[in-house]
């Protein structure tokens, strides 16, 4: 791969100065060198090597970044605004993709039953999908990691309590938990707020259905770390247990968590799509990819395949790319597979 080698040599020339940094130079200058040094360490690391020697991963990262980037910039790059009711025209509905005989050049991937441009709805829809995915992964991660560390470090009753709850929860399918939590929360929230809070409810229910995996992984690594002598050294000084957990143990157990989080992101996006497809996810006014697939599904038998196939393809590509990235990360961080 010539281009990577070319980039590498340019990079080396840029960062070689980072190594010869002298500690007597000015503070701001030194800081700059340190950043350059850190970047150089990153590019020299095994992870980076395994990254650019795996073309699948390079493509997966490229696709993921492209999807995230286009979702973030949707209002600027989308050809139409599907939420601007004034610009919609029912005369433009059910137009097939541009390369079909009846296609319209204005609508590359065709339009749906309300005359919305499918490409634009996908761009806007992946915004919602990604947002819900990321937020629920963060929620799961924070919840799972903190419960896992407490469980592993404290042991005893707290450990038993947390792990039994986790075991009960893991005996149900995650989607069932998400549906249950979602349903309960929906009935608790008055109708007037339901649309506004829909995304939060969704994030909460998907997040709560996924914390177990984090907690169990972090618990077992915490139990290994807490018996190491550096933790004992901190205890001898009398550091508060909370500080030991956050400052000593947490950085040392985050490796596997990153892997789980990446794979969980794909799962969370799928779960959100499933819930939206079932009609309990985000409201139709803020359609996610799942909602788009559901809407299009109604027209599949009348031959208007593009309304559902294109959002489905976008979802499949996004999830596949994120999954491949997660798989690579798992292998790259696993010392046994090196």
């Amino acid at each position: 791969m010539w281009w990577i080698r070319a980039c590498g040599s340019i990079w080396e020339r840029l960062t070689v100065m980072g190594d010869s940094a002298h500690p007597t130079e000015g503070l701001s200058l030194r800081k700059g060198w340190r950043i350059a040094g850190t970047l150089k360490r990153l590019t020299d690391s095994d992870i980076f090597y395994s990254f650019y020697h795996s073309p699948v991963t390079v493509i997966a990262v490229f696709v993921t970044l492209l999807m995230i980037g286009s979702a973030l910039t949707a209002p600027w790059i989308a050809p139409h605004n599907p939420f601007d009711l004034a610009s919609l025209d029912l005369m433009d509905s059910h137009i097939p993709p541009a390369w079909e005989d009846d296609g319209d050049k204005r609508y590359l991937l065709g339009t749906d039953d309300q005359g919305r441009d499918v490409l634009s709805t996908i761009l806007y829809g992946s915004r919602i999908s990604l947002m819900v995915g990321f937020l629920s992964v963060i929620f799961s991660m924070v919840l799972g990691v903190s419960l896992g560390i407490i469980s592993g470090y404290a042991g005893g009753l707290a450990d038993v309590l947390i792990m039994r709850i986790a075991e009960i929860q893991i005996s149900f399918p995650a989607i069932l938990i998400a549906l249950l939590v979602d349903g309960v929360l929906r009935t608790l929230i008055p109708n007037a707020h339901s649309e506004r809070l829909a995304v939060i409810v969704l994030v909460f229910s998907i997040g709560i259905s996924g914390w177990v995996q984090y907690a169990r992984t972090v618990r077992s690594s915490t139990m290994v770390e807490k018996n190491k002598e550096y933790v004992q050294a901190a205890r001898v000084i009398g550091i508060h247990p909370v500080l030991i957990m956050t400052r000593h143990i947490l950085p040392n157990v985050m490796g596997p968590v990153l892997v789980i989080a990446t794979i969980h992101l794909a799962v969370a996006i799928i779960t959100e799509a499933t819930l939206s497809f079932l009609g309990v996810g985000v409201p139709p006014t803020q359609p996610s990819l799942g909602t788009l697939i559901r809407i299009g599904n109604d027209f599949l038998f009348s031959g208007e395949w593009w309304i559902t196939i294109f959002p489905s393809a976008a979802l499949a590509i996004l999830v596949l790319a994120v999954n491949l990235l997660g798989d690579w990360l798992r292998d790259a961080l696993n010392p046994k597979l090196r």
Binding site: Q232, V236, I237, N252
Partner: peptide
């Protein structure tokens, strides 16, 4: 309690056996 132990803890220290485990790698 922690507050009572603190002054005594300051006057004591420990050197551990395994130099590879006794320093936080991060």
């Amino acid at each position: 309690n922690r507050a009572q132990l603190r002054p005594v803890r300051r006057r004591m220290a420990m050197i551990f056996q395994d130099p590879y485990a006794s320093l936080n790698p991060r």
